[in-house]
Simulated scan of single mutants.
Amino acid sequence: MANFSTRKNVAVSDATLEITQIKSAIGGKQNQRDTLRSLGLKRIGHTVNRKADEVTVGMVNTVPHLVKVEEVNNG
């Protein structure tokens, strides 16, 4: 099984991030469940696109083991 989790190294930039939930929040801490919901993620495999601003990067770095982050080409 491949490990797709994101390390805590997502940085603020002008890029758009494609954030996908890859693991369940069941059994996790309440703040991690709240963070996933704030990102707009509702279930495993659900993907959202967000700007890489300070708020989004902070949330992604809170739950790196539950999400996969990819930078989207804006062109």
Rank of each mutant, 00 (worst) to 15 (best):
residue 30 Q to M: 11
residue 16 T to V: 12
residue 25 A to W: 08
residue 33 R to S: 13
residue 23 K to I: 01
residue 56 T to H: 02
residue 71 E to G: 00
residue 43 R to A: 15
residue 35 T to K: 00
residue 47 T to L: 04
residue 66 L to S: 00
residue 44 I to F: 01
residue 20 T to A: 09
residue 62 T to N: 13
residue 33 R to Y: 03
residue 56 T to R: 01
residue 71 E to W: 00
residue 49 N to T: 12
residue 44 I to A: 04
residue 25 A to K: 05
residue 51 K to D: 11
residue 5 S to E: 12
residue 30 Q to Y: 07
residue 61 N to F: 02
residue 6 T to H: 03
residue 2 A to T: 13
residue 63 V to W: 00
residue 60 V to R: 03
residue 48 V to S: 04
residue 33 R to V: 14
residue 51 K to Y: 07
residue 46 H to I: 07
residue 71 E to K: 13
residue 27 G to R: 08
residue 26 I to E: 07
residue 28 G to D: 08
residue 42 K to C: 01
residue 26 I to G: 00
residue 27 G to L: 09
residue 44 I to C: 04
residue 20 T to G: 03
residue 44 I to W: 01
residue 52 A to Q: 03
residue 59 M to L: 12
residue 45 G to T: 09
residue 39 L to E: 06
residue 37 R to F: 08
residue 14 D to T: 14
residue 47 T to D: 02
residue 47 T to R: 12
residue 63 V to C: 10
residue 9 N to Y: 03
residue 14 D to K: 14
residue 62 T to G: 00
residue 47 T to A: 10
residue 50 R to H: 10
residue 27 G to W: 08
residue 28 G to L: 11
residue 2 A to D: 13
residue 74 N to C: 04
residue 65 H to W: 10
residue 65 H to L: 07
residue 9 N to K: 09
residue 38 S to F: 06
residue 36 L to A: 06
residue 21 Q to H: 05
residue 47 T to E: 05
residue 29 K to S: 14
residue 44 I to K: 13
residue 12 V to Q: 11
residue 9 N to M: 05
residue 65 H to D: 14
residue 48 V to T: 09
residue 26 I to V: 14
residue 45 G to R: 05
residue 44 I to N: 11
residue 13 S to G: 09
residue 48 V to I: 14
residue 4 F to H: 10
residue 54 E to N: 09
residue 72 V to G: 02
residue 64 P to Y: 00
residue 11 A to V: 12
residue 46 H to W: 05
residue 35 T to R: 02
residue 17 L to A: 03
residue 19 I to E: 03
residue 36 L to F: 04
residue 3 N to Q: 09
residue 4 F to P: 00
residue 3 N to D: 15
residue 34 D to Y: 07
residue 45 G to Y: 03
residue 27 G to D: 10
residue 23 K to W: 07
residue 15 A to T: 08
residue 49 N to S: 09
residue 37 R to A: 14
residue 17 L to E: 02
residue 54 E to Q: 15
residue 33 R to N: 08
residue 43 R to W: 05
residue 60 V to K: 02
residue 7 R to G: 15
residue 8 K to P: 11
residue 36 L to S: 01
residue 35 T to E: 02
residue 73 N to H: 08
residue 31 N to P: 05
residue 55 V to M: 06
residue 41 L to N: 04
residue 18 E to M: 09
residue 65 H to C: 01
residue 52 A to S: 13
residue 11 A to P: 00
residue 48 V to F: 07
residue 56 T to S: 04
residue 65 H to T: 14
residue 40 G to N: 11
residue 41 L to Q: 04
residue 22 I to V: 12
residue 40 G to S: 10
residue 66 L to R: 06
residue 25 A to H: 03
residue 62 T to C: 05
residue 71 E to C: 00
residue 28 G to C: 10
residue 12 V to T: 13
residue 29 K to P: 04
residue 22 I to D: 00
residue 37 R to K: 15
residue 27 G to M: 10
